[in-house]
Nucleic acid binder design. Structure first.
Lengths: 341, 341
DNA sequence: GCCGACTACTAAACCGCTCTAGTGACTGGG
DNA sequence: CCCAGTCACTAGAGCGGTTTAGTAGTCGGC
């Protein structure tokens, strides 16, 4: 038999389609005896629901959408995304919800996809990342009437739910640590300034510097690429009064920076301490291993997934979930600064 | 208006649903004038097809499935997958086909997902990776009657289509190069021996060694993790008569190996040459940059996507596509072996 | 012994789209 | 002038579920 439908089951059991539907969905309207028989026959015939048919009736699509606006080629290099994806997967697949993934070039295209997917009834909700300072996506998605979870905060994300880690606290802990080691000239190789989290980190750095009375502290924006991370490092290390410590907004840039230091003969951690704002194998397999802010990105993903599922189950709900503040994993790339300097 | 349907359009234009359907799908049955009016109204009303409704009629689902059997946490670290994903995305989204991604624990679960998705009519085809030596998935998917593309070959993948790069040629070119530099003791830190591509590479290495008259050449299987890559390297470097060159089956393991060399005070490339069988930013940002087999994984992804789309459009088609043999990108990690040895 | 409430079910509408069979108007050939 | 053939379009059946309205049958209470 090609693909049994509930009609086939109904015929075989000798009841109506409706009864079968009730039985299979565990809702009242059939006796326990009948339900058992129906379930048994369904099992025998190896019946599976036809998702399209279900979705047509106005029910769930059984999938959530993740749209990432980045040049497609660069997605591959960020361990963060891959980890996040894994976590999302784990959280969603436990409930048999699929993840529809799409990488687009820019925010305009991203919005277009949200519109399309929503109207095509393709997904039950959206997951949004990389929130910008003044993000046009928020309004659009709010207007779509489809649940959405924003990764990142606290910040301007309107009425949408969010899951976030405390970037500010994290940055403060890094500066505290470096200052305690004796560093007074600290540079911050930041990410795209358009992003909310970049802004939060830059602000935290400034505040912390003031608190510690450090005057030679600065943030330098980049586009998150290893190329710009390396170029910025090269620039920092070749100017007089160079920093004794650099904080990188991603592990990838930190590793690129470490490469530059090696190339320029700057000893790490002897002459330069390096801290990465993100952790992954990357920071552990290089030599020296990098001190890094270790947040469990995988867990972050599962957290987002769960929030998403809760929202889908109960529309109108709003949830803001703060994940544990990441802690600093101290490795070999940080040490007190050289006395000269 | 909530969500316009073709019925709404039909009413507004003053024609029947059928006519609207014909017009919107560019098939004959309506005059050009009517078609133009319908398209215009559809545009005005911002109509979008309801994918579920379409799929219900027996048409396309508009998505293809990729199931990866790996411990979810490890997915994040392989640049290869992320790159591949990007390429797939690019190829599919150009035709508005979505990618349904699922990470499962093992092959049994993977097969279960294929079965479920096929019977749920959720996807139009499957993309399979990591083919094993005797892979049970092939038979199952063949029996499902859903088109599938296998990444990797040439090998046993039954009647399924495939896209592959020539691993054998690639390994031969690496050994040729190392032999030409003067290396005679070469080790190969391989991946999981259960995989077809691992077997092909190991066989190629053996054959090539014989051809070059090299006797001290061996392959050591690992699980592809950075941990086992590092451990194997440690073992290799600490035994007497250690290799002067190591070929790693992935860029991640190569970088891990480089870290071990640094830790053990073995100079690269002075005392040890390192070649990675995969390329990504990883190999370029470390210092020294690694000589690597550079295949365009992104392009591989788009190639797979196109093959998939062709198969969906024309069921029964079978295509075996060989991609360009990857070429060796020589960087700083390879040099002639030290004279002493 | 009748009414109302409840149970266990059936029949059929409905979701939005596709596609086939059918219809009326027009055209052209004999 | 009639008939076949084409064209442009309509009506409506189906796809596989969910859901609502309706209907027997049973039971309990007064």
């Amino acid at each position: 038999m090609a693909r049994p439908t509930i009609e086939d089951i109904a015929r075989r059991v000798g009841v109506s389609k409706g009864a079968v539907s009730f039985a299979l969905n565990g809702r009242p309207g059939v006796s326990e005896a009948t339900r058992a028989r129906i379930l048994q026959v369904a099992e025998e015939m190896n019946w599976r629901p036809h998702t399209a048919a279900r979705a047509l009736g106005g029910a769930r699509a059984g999938a959530v959408g993740l749209v990432i606006a980045r040049p497609a080629r660069t997605l591959g290099v960020e361990p963060f995304f891959a980890q996040l994806l894994s976590g999302l997967q784990a959280g969603l697949s436990a409930h048999s919800v699929a993840l529809e993934l799409l990488v687009v070039e820019d925010t305009t295209a991203e919005i277009e996809v949200y519109r399309r997917w929503a109207s095509e009834h393709r997904v039950d909700g959206f997951i949004m990342v990389d929130l910008k300072v003044r993000d046009t996506r928020v309004d659009v998605v709010e207007g779509l009437g489809v649940p959405a979870v924003v990764l990142g905060g606290p910040g301007r994300h309107g009425s949408l739910s969010s899951v976030w880690a405390d970037d500010r606290e994290a940055m403060l802990s890094i500066v505290d640590y470096l200052a305690a080691l004796g560093h007074r000239r600290i540079a911050h190789v930041a990410g795209l300034p358009a992003f909310q989290h970049t802004q939060r980190r830059m602000r935290a750095l400034r505040d912390s510097a003031r608190r510690h009375g450090l005057t030679d502290v600065s943030s330098l924006p980049t586009d998150f690429s290893d190329a710009e991370g390396a170029a910025t490092t090269r620039m920092l290390l070749s100017r007089p009064g160079r920093p004794t410590a650099i904080v990188y907004d991603s592990d990838l840039m930190a590793v690129a920076g470490l490469g530059v230091a090696g190339e320029m003969g700057v000893a790490v951690p002897g002459e330069l301490s390096i801290v990465a704002f993100d952790d992954s194998v990357l920071t552990r397999i290089v030599h020296p291993a990098l001190t890094a802010l270790s947040r469990d990105t995988f867990a972050l993903g599962t957290e987002v997934a769960e929030t998403m599922l809760a929202l889908v189950a109960e529309p109108g709900l709003r949830r803001d979930r703060r994940t544990p503040t990441p802690r600093l994993a101290v490795r070999e790339s940080t040490a007190p600064p050289a006395l000269a300097g």
